[in-house]
């Protein structure tokens, strides 16, 4: 009987170890929050490792990704502002060139089906090519970036630690950046604590705001990611509007002026707002929707309280995500 127990215990331990090992291989460092859906990004195809994540972080803050070695991804995606460009309405490239759209937050990208405001990119591994090569952003060619990294003293060794060999190519460069970016998960706002029933509760105002939010906003800004990952007009286009948004990708007249619905997580930190950063303050945005949906002052007040509960202090203060 004792022997059988020992054997059983041994089998259980072996299974337990196997389970841990396979979990590590499948997802690496990445952990999907329990209240989130299944990620869209193929984590199994590029599981973040400690070495890959660190390399991706170094590349994210690497100014040699730009033509004149002045700006990095982190230049326009500041952690304290939920990885947006605080105070900048339009993206800001080398030689003070301006793009035509507002730098969006980098968070929870593992769940995106579409990237960029117009959804022209469908794979996170291909996204960084746009800001690197756009003449209004980093204005650099991928082959030059690869040449610069190959000539560096540290990078070949770091690529070896992450991917097994000192060779540096497009695939490894993009996969390292993706390993860093998929780890930027924001799922620890007050909202999340309330939903996890961890003892934290909404104030009366936040609760009232949530009710209004669900009625008015949640068909586009669907919890828990607070976006439907679809495209919509927000009613702010004028006749003089020069940006056709989603139309540029699909050439469908119905898509004129449509942009990807942004997540509202950390929205209090991501001013200015809208695809062109035209609204400086959250109050400007709320006023726009107040008119659009004919809402009362008190509704807007409660809504704002609720939006505050989406701010994730752990995310913006996590030192793993900061420039080292």
């Amino acid at each position: 009987m004792l022997k059988a127990n020992k054997l059983f215990l041994g089998i259980v331990i072996v299974f337990f170890i196997l389970a841990i090992l396979s979990w590590n291989i499948e997802g690496g460092l990445f952990v999907s929050p329990p209240h989130f859906p299944k990620p869209t990004y193929s984590i199994e195809g590029n599981p973040p490792t400690s070495a890959g994540f660190k390399l991706g972080r170094k590349l994210f803050y690497e100014s040699r990704l730009s033509a004149d070695n002045t700006i990095s991804c982190g230049s326009c995606h500041n952690q304290f502002a939920a990885f947006t460009h605080h105070g900048h309405d339009l993206s800001h490239g080398i030689y003070d060139r301006l793009g035509k759209r507002n730098a969006p937050p980098i968070m929870n990208l593992a769940w995106n089906k579409y990237f960029m405001w117009d959804g022209g990119v469908l794979d996170l591994d291909l996204q960084p090519i746009i800001p690197i090569t756009d003449s209004n952003e980093m204005n650099e060619s991928l082959s030059c970036v690869l040449d610069k990294l190959k000539a560096d003293k540290e990078y070949p060794q770091l690529f070896k630690e992450a991917f097994g060999s000192t060779e540096i190519n497009t695939e490894k460069l993009m996969k390292a950046l993706s390993q860093f970016m998929v780890m930027l998960v924001s799922a620890n706002a007050k909202y999340d604590s309330v939903k996890r029933q961890s003892g934290v509760v909404f104030t009366a105002e936040e609760k009232a705001g949530e009710v209004i939010f669900i009625q008015t906003c949640s068909s586009c800004h669907v919890p828990p990611l607070f976006t439907s990952d679809k495209f919509a007009t927000n009613g702010i286009l004028s006749q003089q509007e020069v940006d056709n948004g989603r139309f540029d990708i699909t050439l469908d007249e119905n898509d004129k002026g449509k942009f990807r619905i942004p997540s509202l997580r950390n929205v209090m930190l991501t001013a200015p707002y809208m695809h062109d950063g035209r609204f400086r303050e959250i109050d400007d945005v709320l006023l726009h929707y107040k008119k659009k949906y004919n809402m009362s002052d008190s509704s807007i007040h409660y809504l704002k309280s609720f939006l505050h509960s989406l701010t994730d202090q752990d995310f913006i203060n996590d030192v793993r995500f900061s420039e080292q």
Binding site: M116, D118, G120, V121, L122, D123, L126, I129, I130, T133, D134, S141, S143, C144, D248, I249
Partner: peptide
């Protein structure tokens, strides 16, 4: 490819 010779389309992949 470098520069103008590039045949990859990034913004609409």
């Amino acid at each position: 490819y470098k520069g103008d010779e590039n045949m990859y389309w990034g913004w609409n992949t």
